[in-house]
Amino acid sequence: MKTIKIFILPFIILLSGIFGACHKVIIKKNEKGNAAENFEYLWHQIYIKYSFFQYKNIDWQNVKSKYLPLISSGMSDEELFEACALMMNELRDGHANLVAPFDASVYYPIFLNSPTNFDARLVLTRYLMRHGANMQSTGAIDNCIIDTFGLKIGYLRYNSFMENLYTEDLDYILEKMMSCNGLILDVRSNGGGSSFNVFSLAGRFADTKRLAFKSYAKSGHGENDFDQGTNLYIQPQGKYQFTKPIAVLTNRGCYSATSFFTLAMKAFPYVKVIGDTTGGGLGVPNGGQMPNGWTYRFSVTKTISPDGKNYENGIPPDITVWMSDSTLHPTHDEIIERAIVYIRDGL
């Protein structure tokens, strides 16, 4: 035992100490870094990964020149956050966000600089709750059947792609709607969410497998360094697929997953997009973390439609309709009414 005491234990303790301390050499201890280091880190990450510099004609070097003078060593975290957020807003991208413990930045102008083209109370009172419509809230989707012009028109309202869609719920709704002459899918002011929901919902309206769009991801730090691209398809899903006339209602509040859904639905010849141009947001955002622990995200892919167009700034509708915004107490929703006409007349 004397041998053990003399040799083994000190040996183990020594090794433990040596190697236990080695991590400090190999991995540096976290330091928040100064304002300039954090600003530079964020700027550089965007510089090497953002996917729309060319499409949006943004000179990121110029943006740095514009905001670097705002950075000083004595500035507060709040001031640094504001400078970084302003810089990210130069991307004009709703997917470009900065998150600190005390604040989160959002680029609002896409939605705020456009007419609302949606009135939730009007939709609820005038359509969903109208006499005989038999409104139901099935999972994430409010739905009813509107009986008008001798037609039965299904109305589906989906507020957010953040809310998961379940097979059983969609089966129930589609079974109920199969006898309808047409369908209105109202995704106005749906700000997006999970792309899984895009495909599970759009697949319920697919007659056959069709190319929806093509996605290209940044693969290097050059502005045009993208991978070879991947085709994304919509194919029939679930027990029932509704393939009669369908109107998808959109406005500028349709962003991200909702724009993906809108673009996917345009692949079907019996679908018309009615309302206003969507907000866009067809670049999938990544995620990252600055030296001071704040997190950020911005778009790192681009999406191209089957006809080769980039709709990052919004998907235009097939039939443009704006709601009259001067009425304090509107009696009808012009966009829904136009969708009814489309289902009735096919025009």
Partner: peptide
């Protein structure tokens, strides 16, 4: 991982992950 670590896209065929 790929350049951006993106691992969530679906390809539309049975919700199979693209990446």
């Amino acid at each position: 991982p790929n350049y951006n670590g993106i691992s969530h896209l679906v390809d539309g065929t049975g919700n199979i992950l693209q990446y």
